[in-house]
Nucleic acid binder design. Structure first.
Length: 175
DNA sequence: ACGATGATGAAC
DNA sequence: TTCATCATCGTA
């Protein structure tokens, strides 16, 4: 069974959505073909006080979409090289988003966007079938023991408290 | 270990 | 208008 995740799914507490998103699918339609990738790693950026989040220094033209309703994509360029794919979560007015860090066989957020050929054209678009990029629940049950909580990557600038928070959720297949 | 590479936002 | 910074990655 395949169920498209609606804005209602993303309109929940960000950490809850982040954990639930592991094991779901990112689906893209391009050149008439549909491809689905299982989400294996995500990171939460939760609220205005999160010092690792772009939203911690207030609303700007770039992060505006984070302050809007859930279910919209937030893409931005880092290091002049890599697009980061995020999905906005939580209530309108509360800035939060989840970074898609890895999919099956695709490790690293920059490689996710490179492989799927995602650019600024998806920024501010809703995660719907019409957009051509959306999320699905394909009925896979993920146990809590299969998800590892880790500190986020590349956020030392946020200071010891916020950089150490375990806002990264990673699927543990085996080992 | 380091440079690429360019938009962003804050300061001046 | 200038300038430091950056939710990374490939090459060495």
């Amino acid at each position: 069974m395949k169920k498209v995740l609606s804005s209602r799914f993303f309109n929940q507490a960000t950490l809850v959505v982040a954990e639930k998103l592991v094991g779901k699918y990112l689906v893209i339609k391009q050149r008439g073909k549909v491809k689905a990738y299982r989400i294996t790693e995500v990171e939460a950026y939760d609220g205005p006080t999160d010092q690792a989040s772009h939203a911690s220094r207030g609303e700007t033209p770039r992060n505006k979409v984070m302050f809007g309703p859930a279910g919209y994509f937030y893409l931005y360029l880092v290091y002049g090289c890599h697009q980061m794919l995020n999905i906005v979560t939580g209530q309108k007015g509360y800035p939060a988003a989840i970074l898609i860090r890895a999919l099956n066989n695709i490790s690293g957020p920059g490689r996710v966007t490179k492989t799927l050929d995602l650019d600024q054209g998806f920024n501010h678009k809703p995660a719907t079938v019409k957009t051509g990029l959306w999320f699905e629940d394909r009925g896979e049950k993920i146990l809590a023991t299969q998800i590892k909580r880790l500190p986020r990557v590349g956020v030392a600038y946020a200071g010891p408290i916020w950089s150490q928070k375990k806002y990264r959720f990673k699927l543990v297949t085996d080992e």
